[in-house]
């Protein structure tokens, strides 16, 4: 369950204050697959970052899994992210110097899981996205779709309750985009993972349970 209440986000420079989000209210029940759409600069990614605790709201409260996060300190937020959240980014953000399986292990590294168990869970996650045979490859040896599947494996390896995906199909052609979408839908269906996805693609958005539209930092539907 994600609960966003009266959340505003302002970016300030010396002369200008830009409001990225204005008094946003949004609630995402457990197990829902929600998509967020809107024109560039409307605050979609900001909203996702605030839900993912990687950006702080200027005002308002964020409640995740029944816990109000606003007062948490850095270490507690880091632990919460590690245990409850998984991220998928448009540009994958894989670490090029690490092999596929090492990339997937990353969240477990900060959970003090033993190396054998880490390897087992990462291999399992890679099997889930159909990339078992690529575990010792490096990201640069993979296609865009494969990279995104590695990113999904990394997002699910720690069994988070919530996955936040920022335009996961944005850099992929439609066939690969569909493949990624199928994996996310299956994940939502099989494991009941709550997924919030920012997208520009109407076709992808239609496959999700619910669509929220933003414009100029406000909800329009």
């Amino acid at each position: 369950m994600i609960e966003i209440k009266n959340v505003s986000k302002a970016y300030r420079t010396d002369t200008i204050e830009t409001l990225a989000l204005q008094k946003m209210n949004l609630s995402v029940p457990s197990g829902e697959f929600l998509s967020i759409m809107g024109p560039s600069g409307c605050g979609k990614s900001t909203l996702l970052n605030i839900m993912g605790l990687i950006d702080e709201p200027s005002e308002g409260t964020v409640t995740l899994a029944g816990q109000q996060i606003t007062d948490y300190n850095g270490t507690r937020i880091a632990r919460f992210r590690n245990e409850q959240l998984g991220f998928i980014f448009q540009s994958f953000h894989l670490i090029n110097d690490l092999t596929v399986v090492d990339n997937v292990e990353l969240p477990l590294l900060y959970r003090k899981v033993g190396s054998k168990e880490r390897r087992r869970l990462a291999t399992e996650a890679l099997a889930h996205v159909g990339l078992s045979n690529r575990s010792t490859h490096f990201p640069n040896q993979l296609s865009g779709g494969q990279k995104q599947r590695v990113a999904i494996a990394r997002a699910i390896v720690g069994r988070p309750n919530i996955i936040l995906a920022d335009e996961p199909t944005g850099n992929l052609d439609s066939r690969m985009g569909d493949e990624i979408m199928d994996i996310l839908l299956k994940l939502n269906e099989d494991l009941g993972t709550t997924i919030v996805m920012v997208t520009h693609d109407e076709r992808m958005a239609k496959k999700t349970h619910r669509l929220v539209r933003l414009s100029d930092g406000e909800r329009v539907s």
Binding site: G52, G74, A78, R81, F87, Y110, R111
Partner: peptide, 16 residues
């Protein structure tokens, strides 16, 4: 920078 961002997103704290 991006690696640090990813590590933090997946649970690394500043000390890590």
């Amino acid at each position: 920078k991006s690696e640090i961002g990813v590590r933090k997103a997946f649970g690394a704290n500043s000390r890590d």
